[in-house]
Design a binder for these strands. Structure first.
Lengths: 154, 154
DNA sequence: TTTCATGTAACTATCGATATTACATGAAGG
DNA sequence: CCTTCATGTAATATCGATAGTTACATGAAA
């Protein structure tokens, strides 16, 4: 089953937006996410409605962050996307008449509910600021590796 | 995103098979799961290969359980289905060159891995025997409710 | 040797999600 | 103003994954 990559993609573009100080157009973001500008607008509209980003029309327009990175958790972003269903596996029918199926559903539902609660709490623990810091650390690591390799090479 | 209901469906038919003492044909199972006999055979083939069920050809043939209900966990069934991916949400790309995306993926992967581990351990805790007992309890409940209602009505 | 059932390959249909097109709205530049 | 650039959004097209179907082979029982 194909996975919904909007969460991953949106986090990606949000962090890229944070690196810039000016609005970024849907066109630029679309290229970064390898998709269509209209798709970007559709996805970002939820974030705008929740007040996480701003959009401006006309010259110099585009998307920009409306809040501090530390004030946005991954769970916020997930919710702003409309809380797409997290699981690729589910019950055949809701509210079946068959008692066998009711028993099956009850057990599966409990297991999935627990997993969902854990997942959401993990997403809540992480802010965009932390993701950004993680990115900066990786950037430093790469630079160090590069310096060492260059020193070896010379 | 549409959910894969094979796990739910297979558990359903396995419990129905347990209620009978004779082989059940793919045709009958297909009607119970509201699908096609060929689909049943496809799905059950994994369970057969793992030794959980048997299939016989010819007159009086069909599917029957090869093990005790207490010896089959929901995780066993999940694995026999080929461990379909549990989550409907995932990373846009694996092994991206972009460091921003690497940071995003690393964080999401950790959260999803934890949730998956929890979910699998819950599935491992439940045997088909326990599901069957749950079903029997529901059957008793329904009978009791029905008796009470009948008494009220007369 | 006929009937019934599974095994499996190949093909088709369906359906949801993404991509695209088209046009409206509105802001900034000249 | 009016042209350009950008978003907003509805309508439509395209694509891919999965279930469903058809067809035929295998093999067991009557």
């Amino acid at each position: 089953m194909k996975r919904d990559s909007r969460l991953s993609g949106v986090l990606h573009v949000l962090l890229h937006m944070a690196e810039r100080n000016e609005p970024v157009t849907s066109d630029v973001l679309a290229r970064a996410m390898d998709t269509n500008p209209v798709v970007i607008r559709r996805i970002m509209s939820g974030l705008r409605d929740q007040g996480y980003v701003r959009s401006e029309k006309g010259h110099g327009g585009g998307w920009s962050l409306a809040r501090d990175l530390a004030a946005i958790t991954l769970r916020d972003v997930y919710q702003a996307l409309g809380q797409p269903s997290l699981f690729a596996v589910g019950n055949r029918t809701e509210a079946p008449g068959c008692l066998v199926e009711q028993a099956v559903n009850a057990t599966l539902d409990r297991a999935f509910d627990e997993a969902e609660a854990l997942l959401l709490s993990r997403l809540e623990d992480v802010t965009l600021a932390r993701l950004s810091a993680d990115f900066q650390r990786r950037l430093g690591d790469r630079r160090n590796r590069h310096r060492l390799e260059t020193a070896h090479g010379s």
